[in-house]
């Protein structure tokens, strides 16, 4: 089961990727402000949130910072038109998985799934050399 929280002023920005969320074992919830997102996160656990960089009450960056205090394990994706290098500089410390365009499409979802699979694979490759004392 994957729970995804979508945060944007207009729900239509997610129109092209809605089919990806209709699959089994995926639930989505959309809210139109950062405060509503934080309120939702305070009582429900999500695996991923996809947020607009510009929200009516807070920047996307500030929302991620606040959300990390509640659950650092939740992955995040940001809809942003920043150049890739600027985006990397602005968000890497916050552990953002990926940058999406302002209106993401199905290829963006496929890229996200590939990236999540890669992280899952790395996480499964624990290679402990514990015991090699110095």
């Amino acid at each position: 089961m994957a729970n995804i929280l979508l945060v944007s002023q207009e729900k239509t920005v997610f129109k092209k990727i809605e089919p990806a969320f209709s699959k089994d074992k995926t639930t989505t919830q959309w809210v139109d402000s950062a405060q509503k997102a934080l309120s939702t996160l305070s009582h429900k656990k999500f695996d991923l949130f996809i947020i607009s960089e510009e929200l009516p009450d807070m920047t996307g960056r500030k929302l991620i910072e606040k959300a990390l205090f509640q659950d650092a394990m939740m992955n995040s994706v940001v809809l942003s038109q920043l150049p890739h290098k600027d985006f990397h500089e602005a968000y890497e410390g916050l552990g953002v998985l990926m940058q999406f365009p302002l209106e993401p499409g199905m290829q963006d979802i496929r890229n996200l799934m590939d990236h999540l699979d890669r992280i899952d694979k790395i996480a499964g490759e624990t290679n402990s050399l514990k015991g090699e004392g110095n």
């Binding site: 394990m73 552990g95 990926m98 790395i122 996480a123 514990k130 015991g131 110095n134």
Partner: peptide, 21 residues
């Protein structure tokens, strides 16, 4: 005791991998 733990590959957004490790 001193021991060594191999790190894992780092990818963007994979910050929780070393946390869990």
């Amino acid at each position: 005791e001193v021991s060594i733990l191999q790190n894992q590959e780092h990818v963007q957004g994979g910050c929780m991998v070393p946390v869990n490790l």
